[in-house]
Amino acid sequence: MDKDLTSSPLERQNILNNRYALEKLQEHLGLGGTFYDGEWLFTKHQLVEIFGVSGSTIEKYLASHNAELSANGYIVLRGSKLRAFKALIGGTVIDYGTKTSILGVFNFRAMLNLAMVLVESDRARVIRSRILDIVLDVMAERVGGHTKYINQRDCDYLPAAYQEFNYRKEFTNALGDYVEMGKAKYGIYTNKVYQIVFREKAQEYRQILKLSNRENPRDTMYTEVLKAIASVENGLAAEIKAAAERLNRKLRPPEVDNICDEADNNPFLKPIIEDARIKMASRDLGFRDALHHQLEAYIQSVPESDFERFLGEASRSLEEQLSDPEILAVFKRLKDR
């Protein structure tokens, strides 16, 4: 989908939270600035020259986007910090809207943030285009060319997938042993589980992520989503078995539907399900450019910690994880439980 950075705070923050993209942008854009206290800083006067706009235009955006710019690195220097900064740039500051005792400055991240919202500047428009290109390049480079299975780079994915597989067997065994229905019940109640957790049937999920019929949807699901599915499946299996034993017969479909409805409204499951929805909706939009319409209300910006988790040094491909003796030891412990 098209990304209009000028109108989407979410898209802006997803880029600004990606330190790997910021490092590459700083390397390639070459916009200058003054190196102070471990980072590059820009005065408003410097940004006037970079973007080719007036000082009053910069001030306008500082007023309209103050909370966002401040959260991303716009600060006001005072006292000793201001004196030290002045010393670096020769002791003279030409700026707009400041007193001599204070000076507002943008770090590189805040400067990019301004470039993303500054509609009056042709130079900012060119920078926005470069930002989007470089972000795509960084994502492709760090995940090996595609993001469909970026979920598997999480070091917690394999143990979660193994546990979910075991709970899945408990669920299908309960359907087989205690539900009076043909083989269609496995697909029908798998969809019930998916709808409880993330409001989509399997086919809808496939379409959103563009999965082929040969691809297993669960192979693309994040750790938190798999844990939520496992919790629901385990609970349903126990409730189905208990109800059948209490009635001393197999359950009919309407009775199983009632159990599923109760699970959908279970307050004990609500926190883990809501967390799974937030993770799925936010990460799929941020990493896979995939929008889950049923979960739009749960979309948030992808936090910096998630970029570390899926793109950082600790993240590894599935093949690398499977060759790790420590990961294999975890599987052995899970199997021996």
Rank of each mutant, 00 (worst) to 15 (best):
K201D: 11
D156K: 14
A202R: 15
L158R: 07
R206S: 10
A174E: 04
S212M: 08
Q207E: 14
T190F: 01
Q207M: 09
G176N: 14
D122R: 15
S121R: 09
A140K: 11
S212I: 05
C155M: 15
A124K: 02
E170V: 01
V135H: 07
E120F: 05
E120T: 07
V197P: 04
S121Y: 06
D177M: 11
G182E: 06
C155S: 15
Q203S: 09
T190P: 06
I196N: 01
K183F: 02
R130T: 06
D156V: 01
H146E: 15
V193Y: 00
E141W: 06
S121M: 10
Q152G: 00
A202H: 11
R206E: 09
P159Q: 00
E164R: 10
V197Y: 03
N166D: 11
L136D: 15
N166W: 15
L158M: 08
L209G: 08
Y157S: 03
I188L: 14
S212H: 13
K183C: 02
V126M: 09
K201R: 15
V179D: 00
V126Y: 08
E141R: 14
Y186M: 02
D177V: 06
Q207K: 12
M181S: 12
G187N: 11
V138T: 04
E170S: 12
Y162I: 05
Y205C: 02
Q163R: 10
G145L: 06
G182P: 13
A160M: 08
A184S: 12
H146N: 13
L175D: 03
D154I: 05
R153S: 00
K169R: 11
Y178V: 01
A161E: 13
D122M: 09
